[in-house]
C-alpha cells in the first residue's frame, strides 16, 4: 500500500490537513503569498509568521510518468504520477486516480488517498474539460 508521507516540523500541517480532507497551502501572514513546498520563512518578506489557505483543488496536468522498473515501492501497481499546476499557481507532484494515461493540459481536481499507516495524501481525478 501507498507509503506514508515523510513529515517534518515545517511541513506536517500539510499532511495533517489531508487526513482531515483539507487541501492547504502555506500562506505568509504579512504578505499573503502562498508557497509550496512549505518552508520555515517567507522568501519574499522573510517573515516567520505563517498561516494556511484552503486551495480550490482545481489544477492542470503539466507532465505525467509511470515508474515501471523498479515498480513504485509500496504500491500494488505503479500509479500514474502527475505534475500539476494548481489554480493558485503552485505546482506539486501527485497521482492521477485510475490507470488511463492523461494528456498534458488535462484539467483535474483534488481528492485524497489513504496511506499504509492511516495518513492521507492529495491525489487528483480527471474532470470533464
Amino acid at each position: 500500500m501507498r507509503p506514508d508521507p515523510i513529515q517534518r516540523l515545517d511541513t506536517t500541517f500539510f499532511w495533517d490537513a489531508c487526513e482531515r480532507g483539507e487541501f492547504l497551502a502555506q500562506k505568509c501572514e504579512p504578505c499573503n503569498k502562498l508557497w509550496h513546498p512549505p518552508r520555515p520563512m517567507c522568501p519574499d518578506c522573510h517573515s516567520l509568521e505563517k498561516s494556511t489557505q484552503n486551495l480550490s483543488g482545481k489544477a492542470t496536468i503539466l507532465s505525467w510518468v509511470r515508474q515501471v522498473r523498479p515498480a513504485s515501492f509500496g504500491f500494488k501497481e505503479s500509479p500514474i504520477v502527475i505534475l500539476v499546476e494548481l489554480e493558485e499557481g503552485l505546482r506539486m507532484v501527485s497521482n492521477l486516480v485510475g490507470d488511463e494515461p492523461p494528456e498534458i493540459g488535462d484539467p483535474v481536481e483534488v481528492d485524497f488517498a489513504k496511506t499504509s499507516g492511516g495518513k492521507a495524501v492529495p491525489v487528483f481525478k480527471k474532470v470533464a474539460s
Binding site: R2, P5, I6, R8, P37, F75, V93, S94, V121
Partner: peptide
C-alpha cells in the same frame, strides 16, 4: 517528501 508517497521514487 513530495515525491515518495506518490510512487515517483527513482
Amino acid at each position: 517528501e513530495w515525491c515518495f508517497p506518490f510512487g515517483a521514487q527513482t
